[in-house]
């Protein structure tokens, strides 16, 4: 998969973050049935951190956090820091993570989707807010983490497909070298 297009990848990531923030707020039967609102932004942050530079990670965290908070009762800007930390930690270790492996994407997505809401609630308490948190929140945390984990490989697959369809295919040079070929002659 060719994720490293310098212009298209950041644009696609920002578009994905915009749609992810909207999907979190959209009315959907799955959220009603699971009794938890679903958050795809940490999964998008994982993709950004593993495929783009720190500038894209920073911009995605800032805009994604603002977009999400604008649709929520959260204080504006509270989601930026957790998303950025997710991106920063993953980006720091991106050379060690097998980013093409779905299981690695799932595992990193699980950690990111669990860490971001936890840190947001912690920040809210630090600011003196009283979010609705109790034993039932553990179920919501589990659901959000698992769905974020499942969404991460799907985002990698979808973004890979999008990038591939909008860019020229990568030209792989042939391994054949005429000057190194064995010529059969007469014995």
């Amino acid at each position: 998969m060719n994720f490293l297009n310098p212009i298209l990848t950041p644009v696609a990531i920002l578009l994905a973050a915009f749609v992810a923030a909207f999907l979190g707020a959209a009315v959907n039967p799955l959220s009603t049935w699971l009794r938890a609102q679903i958050d795809f932004l940490p999964a998008v942050m994982v993709f950004a951190a593993l495929t783009a530079g720190i500038t894209t990670v920073t911009v995605t965290a800032c805009l994604g956090g603002l977009w999400q908070d604008s649709l929520s009762a959260n204080p504006l800007g509270i989601s930026i820091l957790p998303l950025f930390l997710v991106g920063l930690i993953v980006h720091r270790s991106h050379e060690l993570i097998l980013r093409d492996q779905p299981f690695a994407q799932f595992a990193v997505g699980l950690g990111a989707s669990a860490f971001a809401p936890f840190l947001t609630v912690l920040l809210l308490y630090t600011m003196g807010r009283q979010p609705i948190v109790g034993w039932g929140s553990l179920w919501q945390w589990l659901v959000v983490s698992l769905i974020g984990a499942v969404a991460t490989p799907i985002i990698f697959w979808a973004m890979g497909g999008l990038t591939a369809s909008l860019t020229h295919p990568v030209f792989h040079e042939s391994k054949h070298r005429p000057d190194r070929s064995i010529r059969r002659g007469r014995l």
Binding site: A25, A26, Q37, D39, L71, N74, P117, V121, P131
Partner: peptide, 15 residues
């Protein structure tokens, strides 16, 4: 018509 819900699980609001 309800067009959106709070994306955060710790608030109760809708649009």
């Amino acid at each position: 018509r309800v067009i959106g819900r709070d994306p955060a699980n710790w608030w109760r609001s809708l649009q």
